[in-house]
Design a protein around this nucleic acid. Structure first.
Length: 112
DNA sequence: TAGGTGACCCGCG
DNA sequence: GCGCGGGCCACCT
C-alpha cells in the first residue's frame, strides 16, 4: 500500500476492505499500519466517511477491547451487531467474543 | 485563515 | 486493579 496520493481516510478504507470475512480489526491496528499509531482517532473519523462507501465493512472495525463503539453511527445501532453475527461472529453486550482469536492485524497479515 | 471536532489509545495516579 | 486525562492529526465550518 504505497498509495501516498490518497488521503488518510482513503487508505483506511482500502485496509478495511482487506479485512477477511468473519474477522475483525481495531482502530489502533489500522492506525499503526498507516504509520500513525497514536492517531487512531482519525481512523474512527475516517470510518465516519466510510458510510458513503458500501465496500468498506465498518462493522468489522471495533476498538482495542472488541467493543462495538461505533454502532451508534450506523443506520440502526443494532445493525452493526447483526452484520457481525451474520458473519458468524459472536457478539455479547456490544462486545466481540473471542476477540483475540478473531482479531485481524494488517501489520501481521499483510506483512510488516 | 484559524479553530474545533472525533466510531481511540496509552500512561500515570 | 481501575479511572481519568492528555495526545494525535486530517477534515469540516
Amino acid at each position: 500500500m504505497e498509495n501516498k496520493d490518497l488521503s488518510f481516510f482513503d487508505m483506511v478504507h482500502q485496509v478495511a476492505r482487506l479485512i477477511p470475512y468473519g474477522r475483525v480489526t481495531s482502530y489502533g491496528a489500522i492506525a499503526r499500519y498507516l504509520g500513525s499509531g497514536k492517531s487512531a482517532r482519525m481512523v474512527g473519523w475516517a470510518m465516519n466517511a466510510a458510510h458513503n462507501i458500501p465496500d468498506v465493512p465498518a462493522h468489522r472495525v471495533v476498538n482495542s477491547s472488541g467493543l462495538l463503539t461505533g454502532r451508534q453511527h450506523f443506520v440502526h445501532p443494532y445493525r452493526m451487531q447483526e452484520l457481525l453475527e451474520a458473519e458468524g461472529i459472536v457478539v455479547e453486550n456490544h462486545q466481540v467474543k473471542d476477540f483475540d482469536s478473531l482479531l485481524w492485524e494488517p501489520l501481521k497479515e499483510l506483512g510488516l
